[in-house]
Nucleic acid binder design. Structure first.
Lengths: 196, 196
DNA sequence: GATCGAAACGGACTACAGTCCGCTTCTATT
DNA sequence: AATAGAAGCGGACTGTAGTCCGTTTCGATC
């Protein structure tokens, strides 16, 4: 007899020791962030706290940036759920424009809250493809709902770009622009793009 | 007699040995980038090549990011000159909308060209305040010329945001969007924001 | 339950960023 | 020209990211 037809079983299942370590690592990482802040999460400290070797940490996350990306992902999942299925105006139920504006503000708050983590995660593939594009995809969908015409993928990217942490921090920290002015500015931007 | 009135002489002049070393360091840095790429520019290698101690490198640039920021600044100065005083449509002379569109495209090309350097420079203050805000200031000015109403500072930031390297790389490298579609998208964005 | 290949582990090792402090060089003053 | 104090210098030292490879653990098969 040949093997039990691995037809659609693409990824080989995770070994039990690997699963145990992954769990221990994530828990230790969250704990270290709370205790010592993002900067205090060193790969050595993480390995020690999780009771594994350093090599294991790198096998799991690839790099420090990868680790931070994983933590970020963990945190963002909750927010994504609120957007997809939470109460209006962020979740479904409110009219599209209201939803879009609520979305923008919510995203700003989130990006500022996670600023350290985002920075530590860097850009490179760390903020997993899926997580990053979720934001753009959602805006694109809402633009469609609003009946906007044109290259919606690009317009979505353009609307999301000024919500990025790197841009926000420039405005908030350096230029000292108050949050409500930023919110108002983005609202105006949306109105112009959506046509009205 | 008291001192010769240091009234307006704000920064104490640079010592000669310091000037010599600064020059040697910049030259060595440019050379190393050409030879081994941005990643090959280590602080040790730079110090060795310039014939100075490591402490001197850090005294001069503060950090690796600071060094990269200095290199970037060096490269961008030329471009700023082209924007402020070069031939149209980038430089003065062309109608504002044409100038703005030329500006956007030029900025994209530049950001992609300098991608490695920009990334290595990080965000934190390294891309000197002045250099960073030049772009936004210029867009703001052109929006004014176009007779756009509203919070021009915010609108300028919003138009510049999707030209940032971090956003462009996502589009070009990961989503494989061709450059001309990106250019077209930005052009459309500008038209919507400027009201048309 | 014995065997075997593959996957995962762990920690010593390397390379680089950034610090520290005693030493040298410069410049202003007399 | 001599001197003093400040500015600058340099390289040994520390801490952390990331690599490497011999060893251990797992789970599939017989």
């Amino acid at each position: 007899m040949s093997k039990p037809l691995p037809l659609l079983t693409s990824p080989p299942p995770e070994r039990r020791d690997a699963a145990r370590n992954r769990e221990a690592l994530m828990e230790a990482a969250v704990c270290l962030v709370e205790l010592h802040g993002v900067r205090g999460v060193t790969m050595d400290a993480l390995a020690a706290r999780a009771g594994v070797g350093k090599g294991t940490v790198f096998r799991r996350f690839g790099s420090r940036e990868g680790l931070m990306g994983a933590l970020l992902n963990h945190s963002e999942t909750e927010w994504q759920a609120a957007v997809m299925g939470g109460p209006p105006p962020l979740g479904p139920g409110a009219p599209p424009l209201e939803r879009l504006l609520a979305f923008g503000e919510s995203r700003m708050v989130l990006n500022i809250k996670h600023a350290e983590l985002i920075e530590a995660a860097g850009n490179p593939g760390a903020r997993s493809f899926a997580a990053l594009s979720f934001t753009t995809m959602h805006v694109r969908y809402l633009l469609g709902q609003l009946g906007v015409e044109g290259d919606l993928a690009y317009l979505a990217t353009a609307l999301v770009a000024p919500l990025e942490m790197i841009v926000l921090r420039e405005q908030v920290d350096r230029e000292q622009i108050p949050m409500d002015r930023i919110t108002a500015g983005w609202t105006d931007l949306v109105r112009r793009v959506a046509g009205g």
